[in-house]
Every structure is written in structure tokens, then in C-alpha cells.
Design a protein around this nucleic acid. Structure first.
Lengths: 147, 147
DNA sequence: TATTGTTATACTCTATAACTATA
DNA sequence: TATAGTTATAGAGTATAACAATA
């Protein structure tokens, strides 16, 4: 007999199961970093920039949910690789304007696909219903994370 | 008109959306670390130990999906805090046997709940159907991550 | 004074390579 | 020789505190 207690127990454990699941999946994703590629964090910032066109370092930090000093380092790394540039803000000289270079635009699609090959393979092993569950879960998690 | 292309497009983007979602949620979870608490990684190892009772460092590393040197450090940190102990293996002196101390058992429930307060609050804001989606997603992600 | 961003510093998490002890 | 584990070292990711430049 499927009791109410089973449901309650399963619900109670959701926090812990979700925590373990996302931490482990993130470990696997970070491990899929080819030697010459940008890191997962750098890639995420590039994707954010592609979406917004241009952004100040502070805006990027807010979009990614990290502190400004963390974003400073990410931008510096991407600048070293020639994937983003900075321009002066027209009226506020405290701010910088960051945007993807041509090289950055050219690289991002390839990087995303290369990086996600492992995850693509895993997702391909699922059935349609399972993929639909993950699709909805991604929406819900994004909302919870305040992005 | 809801075309087939929309569905295909949404499916194609699942990899990227899922990656972003789990990376950001993991960031938030790691940020919820009180000063005197064990870290998220240490907590995960403790939960693994609670489940298996005892385990060798190598078994723990495999359960958590990390390399042995990484687990060595996690165990050392927990030993320093008095939350786990090591015993000699009865027949193979290369191996160690790790288990939770009384203090470890006493602490783990509190730590888990303290750590997951933020996530609990977020989950409480969802409706039943959304929680059910996340519950299924956690199962699927665990399976994909090979745990 | 307040805001934007950077620099300095430190800690967690993880890995690979090289080593020790035991099988 | 092979296996279990540790030590040494390094790099990614992130934070807080202190600072500089500009508003």
C-alpha cells in the first residue's frame, strides 16, 4: 500500500537529493575541459555576453551571480585570449564596456558544442519523457537561482 | 502555430540550459556555508559514509566520483574535526577503514539541515507539480552522473 | 560621499605525477 | 609487478578587504 508517509518522506528528502545531484553533475561537467579550451566559468560569461551584446563588468557579475572581483578575473582571462575587448563608457569613465570580439563570436559555438559533447551523449540515452522532465527542471532551477 | 521546429529547437538547447542551471545552483549552494561548518564536499562524503557504514578511502572516492588524492584531503579535514576515524583493515594493511565518529553522526543531521535552509526556502516557494519535476530530475541526473 | 572596478590575499575543490608501503 | 594510499604541486573558482578613480 502506497502510504501518505512515502510521499512525505520522498518530498522531505528532495532537498538533499537535489543538492547531491547538481553537485555531482557539475563535477562531471567541469571535468570535460579540453586543454586549450576556455573554462566552464569563462564559457558561461561568454554566453551571457552573447545574449546581452555588451555589458559592464558589474552587470556581468550580476548576471552570473558572482562578486565583481571574481568577474574581473574571468574578463582578464578572456581578454588575454583575445575573446573579449573593453571600451570606455561614453559618459561614465568609471565603467567599462565589455563585448565579444570576432574571435569570441567565432569560438563560442564550437566551444559550447565541444564542451557539451559528454552531456549530449548522456542526454541522448534518455527517452523523450525524461528529457522533457529535465527541460522543465532547468527552467525551475534557473528561477530558483534568481537568474 | 506551434511548429515541430520549436520543439526541436527547445530540445537542442537542453544541453546548454541544463549546464547553466546546475552550475548556477551549485554556486548558490556553495555560498550557503556558515563559517564553522563543514564544506559542501565534506558533507557529501559524510553522507556517503553514513549510507555505507564504513568504507576505504578508495571506495569513498569512487562513490563521490573524485580521484583518490582529492578524497585523502577530504578525509584528513574531517579527521581533524573529529568527525571520522580510521581503523586498520584486518587482513590488508594497505587499506584503511573510515567511519563516522559519534560526533560525526551527531553533527551530520544538523549540518545537512543548516546547509539546506536556503534551498528549502526556495523549494517551499514552488508548487507540488514543480517539486515533483525536480524530484524526477534528481533521479535522472544521478543516473546520468553514474552514481 | 557613493559607485565602479581592480588588486591583494586566502581558502576550497580538484587534478596529475611521483612516492611509500603492502600484496 | 600491481594495488592502496599519501604527498607535492598546480590551476580553477570564489570570496572579503582595501584601494583608486570617477561621479
Amino acid at each position: 500500500m502506497k502510504s501518505e508517509t512515502d510521499v512525505v518522506e520522498r518530498e522531505r528528502a528532495l532537498t538533499g537529493r537535489l543538492r547531491v545531484a547538481v553537485v555531482r553533475l557539475t563535477r562531471r561537467l567541469r571535468a570535460q575541459t579540453p586543454d586549450d579550451a576556455v573554462t566552464l566559468t569563462q564559457l558561461s560569461a561568454m554566453a551571457s555576453l552573447r545574449k546581452s551584446g555588451t555589458a559592464s563588468p558589474g552587470e556581468l557579475a550580476a548576471q552570473e551571480g558572482v562578486r565583481p572581483p571574481s568577474m574581473t578575473r574571468v574578463i582578464a582571462a578572456l581578454e588575454d585570449k583575445g575573446l573579449v575587448t573593453r571600451h570606455a563608457h561614453p559618459t561614465d569613465r568609471r565603467q567599462a564596456i565589455v563585448e565579444l570580439t570576432e574571435a569570441g563570436h567565432a569560438r563560442i559555438e564550437d566551444e559550447v558544442h565541444a564542451r557539451e559533447r559528454w552531456l549530449d551523449l548522456r542526454l541522448a540515452e534518455l527517452d523523450d519523457e525524461e528529457r522533457a522532465v529535465l527541460s522543465r527542471a532547468a527552467e525551475i532551477i534557473d528561477r530558483m537561482s534568481g537568474s
